[in-house]
């Protein structure tokens, strides 16, 4: 109490200063908004439109969590982060969760003390080259100039790949995807490398996407997922199961179109009932309302809907589901049961 009063004084003195207590979940509820770290702009995953409204696949995850916790998918403050600032922003509590196509690696999980709550996109690092360069394999790239985003795992993978294939290259480090795009289009580098999904998104923004090809080699595993601070398990559970709810909803055939109907009364499928809160008390166990998952799914649709709307085959980005199909369709998406 004393502390809040002091903060009140600080508020008067200048600008608002928030105060975090033990649990992120309580903080978010008290604040009424979710602070979600996203990229500074990658079309399809997270980018502000001309009016400053954020949209994209990662943004969809943020909105789902906000809807689950606060019941309002617009109660999100999107904090743009670069490769450099993202981890400190999360560690310092400036953001509650990071959904910025971040690769789950051992050292980030263990050494940097973050908690990856799941994987929302199975990715791998690829190479984008102009068609008229006449290259059909990454092994032919000896001596090429390569644009890479610094501070990402792609930088390390690239060094490893070229080293193990014993070919040389000239790295051109860049800070944001926008810069990489400009450099690549101006021909200042022959190759642009980042996660294959990012390449597709970047290519989609080109004037003539057909003039550029993504090479067949995928040189790394890049499981991308949202992450939270280590040690706050309640909050990690909320984010983890909000993501799982999206995945499970697709598996169970719950879409934003039929969710009202399914949630109105218990259905024949007990797992759908538990998910949507018409049966059991899963929401209360998380410290949320009974209809938390329903809100999360209704925010932007289930995983499949989010995918199709933002990065799917009918969008300019045109990514196939591939590894990101449900396990029932031969993909890797597999939500633990809601029980």
């Amino acid at each position: 109490m004393k502390k809040t009063a002091f903060i009140g004084a600080l508020t008067v003195a200048g600008l608002a200063a928030g105060m975090a207590s033990a649990g992120t979940l309580d903080d978010v509820k008290e604040r009424g908004t979710l602070n979600c770290g996203v990229t500074t702009g990658l079309v399809g995953f997270a980018s502000p439109d001309a009016n400053g409204v954020w949209d994209g696949f990662d943004v969809g995850v943020c909105r789902a969590v906000a809807a689950a916790v606060l019941g309002d998918s617009d109660a999100v403050e999107f904090v743009p982060t670069t490769g450099k600032t993202r981890f400190t922003a999360l560690a310092s509590g400036e953001i509650d969760m990071l959904a910025r196509n971040t690769t789950w690696t051992f050292s980030r999980d263990v050494d940097l003390k973050f908690e990856f709550v799941g994987i929302n996109y199975y990715d791998g690092q690829g190479f984008l080259v102009p068609r008229d360069l006449g290259v059909s394999s990454a092994k032919e790239l000896d001596g090429a100039t390569v644009c890479i985003q610094t501070g990402t795992t792609t930088e390390l993978n690239l060094a490893d790949y070229f080293r193990s294939n014993n070919i040389s290259y000239e790295p051109v480090p860049i800070e944001t995807n926008a810069e990489g795009q400009q450099q690549y289009l101006a021909g200042a580098c022959d190759v642009y490398t980042t996660d294959a999904s990012g390449l597709a998104a970047t290519r989609a923004a080109f004037e003539n996407p057909a003039d550029h090809i993504v090479l067949p080699e995928i040189v790394s595993k890049e499981p991308l997922g949202p992450l939270v601070r280590h040690g706050d398990n309640d909050w990690a559970d909320v984010v983890r199961w909000s993501l799982n709810a999206l995945i499970a909803a697709e598996e169970l055939g719950v879409t934003s179109a039929n969710i009202e109907e399914l949630a109105a009364a218990p259905t024949g499928n007990p797992e759908v009932n538990r998910l949507l809160g018409t049966e059991g008390e899963l929401g209360a166990m998380l410290g949320l309302d009974a209809n938390w998952a329903m809100m999360a799914i209704a925010a932007g649709g289930n995983y499949g809907e989010l995918f199709e709307k933002n990065i799917g085959e009918n969008t300019p980005i045109g990514l196939a589901r591939g590894l990101n199909a449900q396990w029932t369709d031969g993909g890797l998406l597999y939500s633990p049961p809601f029980r």
Binding site: K84, F87, L112, T150, G151, T152, E155, L156
Partner: peptide, 11 residues
């Protein structure tokens, strides 16, 4: 202050 900081997290 850039890549090393990012890769190691030793800010």
């Amino acid at each position: 202050g850039g890549i090393t900081l990012n890769q190691t997290g030793r800010a």
